[in-house]
């Protein structure tokens, strides 16, 4: 891994994003708007919003980063730029690291904006340190990036890549504790939700909302990070210098 190359990839990805105003708006503004929409829906029952608000802070970064990365890296594979890069001194880890760095930075900004909006405008109650909301958000977004990168290997077109959203992301949203607390799920589904990475990010956010002790939160962040590293490793395995 060469820092010069990793940083070049990250800078390039950010330049591409900067040029694409619509995607940038989806990354930074849309999560806040959706959050506000849910707050409005539960205007008459603010307790419900206090329960699902933290979960939303975990779900949106994961969702949008998965979407953006799976399409971006699919383009890299299908446009020939990946093949060109692999004839150059580009390591697989440089490419993955560059993407993770760029989207991690965007995620930090996104988490900061979304958490600020939730805590101030939407009066979300959080007992733990607010900065940890950002840390969980970033870990969660890098997880989305890593999974998006991995699944892009199994799509030939952008149309196919988008299909992974309902297949890979929606089940995690249904089981992460947003609809029903995970301990109230049928036993089998609870076990399934235990092995889904998003559940751990949502757990961390809920911990932050309900208690000021952070031990559990750090454990959850560790689990999310481990999932992200595993997904990056799987993603690295799909990046082949030589292809058929």
């Amino acid at each position: 891994m060469t820092p010069r190359i990793t940083l070049a990839v990250a800078a390039r990805v950010l330049t591409q994003l900067r040029r694409d105003h619509r995607t940038l708006a989806m990354l930074l503004v849309l999560p806040c708007l959706l959050q506000a929409l849910l707050w409005w829906i539960f205007e008459a029952t603010p307790l419900v919003f206090d329960r699902i608000g933290p979960a939303l802070l975990a779900i949106f970064p994961f969702f949008v980063m998965f979407l953006v990365t799976s399409i971006t890296t699919l383009r890299e594979r299908s446009s020939g730029t990946l093949e060109r890069l692999f004839t150059m001194p580009m390591g697989r880890l440089d490419l993955l690291g560059g993407y993770a760095l760029a989207f991690g930075a965007v995620a930090a900004l996104q988490a900061a904006i979304a958490a600020t909006v939730a805590l101030t405008l939407l009066d979300l109650d959080v007992r733990g340190p607010a900065v940890l909301l950002g840390v969980v958000g970033v870990a969660d977004a890098v997880l989305g990036t890593a999974l998006g990168l991995f699944v892009s290997a199994f799509a030939r077109t952008e149309f196919q890549a988008v299909q992974f959203l309902p297949a890979v992301v929606v089940p995690q949203i249904l089981l992460c504790g947003l609809l029903v607390p995970r301990e109230d799920l049928p036993r089998v589904l609870e076990v399934v939700s235990d092995v889904m990475p998003l559940s751990w990010a949502v757990d961390a956010m809920e911990q932050l909302a309900t208690t000021s002790s952070t031990g559990q939160v750090w454990r959850d962040i560790g689990v999310v990070a481990a999932f992200a590293v595993a997904a990056l490793a799987l993603g690295a395995a799909t990046l082949r210098r030589r292809t058929e």
């Binding site: 190359i5 070049a8 390039r12 591409q16 446009s79 020939g80 890069l85 004839t87 001194p89």
Partner: peptide, 28 residues
């Protein structure tokens, strides 16, 4: 070794100079 595939294999959403600057950094 310099290689040009049948497609142009550059980033459509970057300028000519941005593309070249990126690849120049990769090549050192």
């Amino acid at each position: 070794v310099g290689y040009q595939t049948q497609s142009s294999s550059v980033y459509d959403d970057l300028t000519v100079a941005e593309n070249l600057r990126f690849f120049a950094r990769v090549l050192g």
